[in-house]
Computed example of a mutant assay.
Amino acid sequence: MTKKIICVWIGTFESEDKLYKNYLKFDYKNEDEPESEFGKDAELEYYDEDFMESWWFSKLELTNLKEYKDDLLDSEYFFDELIAELKNRDLTTRNSISFLFGENGEHSTNEMLFEYNGMKMNNKPIEFVFRKEYEPK
């Protein structure tokens, strides 16, 4: 049985460019171990960016997020729980949200997420907020 997982971070960035072109972009100078600022801050040694989705808003608001629910892979398995978790967070300075998907089984990807326990450091532009394992029907 294939299990899937979603991990979610919220963040604060000066601009959309800073998020997409600087923070999430992989640096391939060291080809053996390309890395991104996101990966370093999230404390992920490696992840497959093809299974990541990041959204930037001028301000992160739950109403905006709900509008995009149907655009998000497998959202029916975790979205309502994610919204409930975000209601407990201070989003006033936040303007981005990043979703990283993983699965084990035949097409495994980002399997390290099943062992992921969040970030140790808090003085980063991102904050880890949510993790859920699920089995698609």
Results as ranks from 00 to 15, higher is better:
Leu91Cys: 09
Met119Thr: 12
Lys69Trp: 00
Asn123His: 09
Asn104Ile: 15
Glu37Gly: 00
Phe79Ser: 02
Ser15His: 02
Glu31Thr: 08
Tyr68Pro: 02
Tyr134Thr: 03
Gly105Tyr: 01
Gly105Asp: 00
Ser98Cys: 10
Ile97Trp: 09
Phe13Ile: 04
Thr93Asp: 15
Ile6Leu: 07
Leu65Thr: 05
Asp17Met: 11
Lys66His: 08
Lys21Phe: 06
Tyr116Thr: 07
Val8Gly: 04
Pro125Leu: 03
Lys87Ala: 12
Glu43Val: 02
Glu127Asn: 04
Asp80Gln: 13
Ser98Glu: 01
Thr109Gln: 11
Tyr20Trp: 11
Ser108Leu: 08
Leu65Val: 08
Lys59Arg: 14
Glu37His: 13
Gly118Ile: 04
Glu115Arg: 06
Glu33Asn: 15
Asp80Glu: 15
Glu53Tyr: 12
Gly102Gln: 05
Asn64Phe: 12
Gly39Phe: 00
Phe51Glu: 08
Glu61Phe: 01
Val129Ile: 10
Lys120His: 13
Ala42Gly: 00
Phe13Asp: 00
Phe13Tyr: 07
Ala84Phe: 04
His107Glu: 11
Leu73Glu: 12
Thr92Val: 14
Glu49Arg: 08
Arg131Phe: 04
Leu24Lys: 02
Ser15Trp: 00
Asp50Val: 06
Glu53Gly: 05
Phe26Ala: 07
Leu73Cys: 11
Asp90Phe: 09
Leu62Thr: 06
Glu115Leu: 13
Asn88His: 12
Lys66Tyr: 06
Ser58Thr: 14
Gly118Gln: 03
Leu86Gln: 07
Thr109Gly: 06
Asp50Trp: 07
Leu60Met: 07
Phe38Gln: 02
Ile126Val: 15
Leu82Phe: 03
Asn104Pro: 06
